[in-house]
């Protein structure tokens, strides 16, 4: 009974965060802000759903697999965001015009793919 209550709360909370990730990806004005929604809300949402599955079955094998999935999502979601963000700068994805500043603009070397740092400007 208590178990079912816990499972229900985690399921609804997790899927609600994933729903917010969906809304976010639809409404946010540019790519980087959409990635905010998918990495954070997607990670916690999938994590909560997997925790709910582990709580429902209460079995060592299932718990091990759900923990593996959670750990994997925690490790990979930010890495995927980094890879896509980096690619976006190479492709030249238009960003929101209300951005306050963009330190990364023109920092990538288009030929060598080396990323410089802000100190480069100070040198002649």
């Amino acid at each position: 009974m208590i178990n079912d209550l816990l499972v229900s709360v985690m399921l609804v909370a997790g899927t609600f965060f994933m729903f917010l990730a969906g809304i976010g990806v639809l409404r946010m004005p540019d790519l980087l802000m959409r990635m905010h929604a998918t990495t954070k809300a997607g990670t916690l949402g999938a994590g909560l759903v997997m925790l709910a599955v582990a709580t429902h079955f209460l079995d060592a094998g299932v718990t091990a697999r759900t923990l593996a999935i959670i750990l994997f999502i925690l490790l990979t979601a930010p890495v995927a965001a980094h890879a896509i963000g980096r690619a976006a700068y190479f492709v030249g994805v238009p960003l929101w015009d209300k951005m306050l500043k963009d330190d990364l603009k023109n920092r990538y070397d288009p030929d060598t793919h080396i990323l410089g740092n802000p100190d480069d400007d100070k040198q002649p």
């Binding site: 980094h82 963000g85 980096r86 990364l104 740092n117």
Partner: peptide, 8 residues
């Protein structure tokens, strides 16, 4: 959201 690390 971390985007990238400079090459150095």
């Amino acid at each position: 959201l971390s985007l990238d690390v400079s090459s150095d």
